[in-house]
Design a binder for these strands. Structure first.
Length: 110
DNA sequence: CACTTGACGTCGT
DNA sequence: GACGACGCCAAGT
């Protein structure tokens, strides 16, 4: 589906993230065919909080595994709570061994 | 209508 | 290897 909006693609990829796994903005941006547009991924996810069905934005972190957008969840602690709820360990606003649970988008039909 | 900012990442110094 | 600058695209001011 090449003619999907940038935001739509972001939402699509994010909804592909399996339970208990996380991905990065850069990987998502690269997966949708716009490498380097990681900022837009975050912008799209910010707007996605009020979407239906909701997008698991808490599973998307930056390259260093930090909870960069926790502020956008209304309650900054909500993102951490959600991640912990999925079995992740959060320390200093970052997922411990996040690289271990990192999930990268497979062949996405662009 | 032009400039700044924003859930980031990569390249150059 | 730390720090700075640019790029990405959209939205807010």
């Amino acid at each position: 589906m090449p003619e999907q909006d940038f935001f739509e693609r972001v939402y699509l990829v994010c909804r592909m993230i399996p339970y208990g796994k996380i991905t990065t903005y850069g990987d998502v941006a690269r997966a949708i065919g716009s490498p380097g547009a990681a900022r837009m991924v975050g912008w799209a996810l910010n707007k996605s909080t009020a979407l239906d069905p909701p997008v698991p934005a808490h599973r998307v972190l930056n390259r260093m595994g930090m909870l960069s957008g926790k502020k956008a969840f209304g309650n900054p602690m909500l993102m951490q709570e959600l991640l912990e709820q999925e079995g992740h360990i959060i320390k200093d606003d970052a997922v411990v061994e996040f690289h271990n649970v990192l999930w990268q988008p497979d062949n996405i039909s662009l």
